[in-house]
Amino acid sequence: MKFNTKTIHGGQEHDPAYGAVMPPIYQTSTYAQSTPGGHKGYEYSRTHNPTRNALEKSFASIENGEYGLAFASGLAAIDAVLKLLKPGDEIISTNDLYGGSYRLFTKVYEDFGLKFHFIGMENADKVRNYVNDNTRLIWVETPTNPMMNIIDIKAMAEVASDHDILLAVDNTFATPYLQRPLDMGADIVMHSATKYLGGHSDVVMGALAVKDKELADKLYFIQNASGGVCGPQDSFLVLRGIKTLHVRMQRHCENGRQIAEYLKTHPKIEKVYWPGFKDHPNHDVATAQMDDYGGMVSFVTKGHDYDEAIAIVEKLKVFTLAESLGGVESLAGHPASMTHASIPKEEREKTGVVDSLIRLSVGIEDIDDLIEDLRQALN
């Protein structure tokens, strides 16, 4: 089954009760039993819920995995992965990381004895230098948020395989429409399903997909034991969102390309970060592992003026100044004061997240309106 068909039919079946084409919203916390332990596969909705199960099967299908898990948020999904580890274990992660992930790693799990190495992951040899007997996980984000750095998933998978450690990939920016990390050797794929999978800025959710049953069973246990699950209404919304993922991503990519090209030629712009440019770091890797370059674009103006960056995002009219990304509407953000505010300034600026950086989540509106909006804001 091809991807565009999987988004609609992957892992799905008509509801057995009445043949409903769309999975019903099973808004229930518990299920009737004929005798203790005698039930139809469902006991309590923290453990299983038919609507959530339908979504989890969809997650697995579109990532070419065997098992999917849905969580209350992307950070809840990451939290479950970290609970596979124990005090003294070490994790290698990119130094250009989503602020929420960095906060969870450093402000929560370091206190429980996990050790994190935040490094540039532009090549595998650099990562190998940090692997030791305590390394248990490599955490990859590609493209990274917000600098759009590209990490070679196959190369990271080779490092992980050589040392018998787990490789997890945050695939939120790319989505499985553009890249499928499990096919490239990753053990775990994570999504903030709040973003492109849901696609309409109306739900908060996280997702994991894996191929290995033993690993899946450990994660299912953690999911149930910790209880960070999503509700049936949210599950329904993301299921509905996934059904249009392919057509939305096609337009996100088309618009993203034109916005990036417009910004690159604008006299006020110093640098545009978008993986589709031939001079973008690891552009060849992006071309090899992605089917297109996505709808996320970051840029800095000449002079690196903080006040000018704030003035630009405040003047935008079609682009909405807001947190998050991946919705049908275009959003603009100022990472230093919004999504990455939890990262110390000196750490942020080492990776390029300067006070003048602006991040765009390019939506699916008419491209002429988006370019005109940027033109008036920049001028």
Rank of each mutant, 00 (worst) to 15 (best):
I358F: 05
I8L: 15
G363H: 02
D366N: 14
A377L: 03
V108R: 11
E329T: 13
S337C: 01
M190S: 07
P275I: 04
R248T: 11
L167M: 07
Y98V: 02
A341E: 14
D89M: 12
M249H: 13
D96W: 05
H9N: 08
D133K: 14
G100W: 02
N145K: 05
G113N: 10
V318Q: 14
E349C: 02
W139M: 12
L370R: 06
K243Y: 00
P24G: 06
I310N: 06
A160D: 12
A225L: 01
R257T: 14
Y67N: 00
D366T: 08
M184C: 03
M296W: 13
F3A: 01
I138W: 04
R248E: 11
M290I: 01
V204G: 13
D366R: 13
I310A: 06
E365R: 03
S298L: 05
R375F: 00
A80D: 04
Y98S: 11
Q27E: 14
R257P: 00
V169W: 09
R46I: 15
E110F: 03
Y26G: 02
M290W: 10
I153T: 09
D125S: 11
K345N: 04
N129K: 14
I8D: 11
Q179A: 11
S101Y: 15
K213L: 08
Q233F: 12
D307I: 02
D307Y: 10
T5Y: 13
D284F: 04
F105D: 12
E158H: 10
M296D: 06
S337G: 01
E158Y: 09
Y98H: 13
I165E: 11
D305A: 04
L167P: 04
A260T: 09
M1S: 09
G227R: 10
T30L: 11
M190K: 06
T172G: 06
K86D: 13
P181D: 06
V354N: 11
G303V: 00
D292W: 06
S337V: 04
I8M: 08
A341M: 07
V204C: 12
G326E: 02
L208Q: 05
W139E: 07
F319G: 02
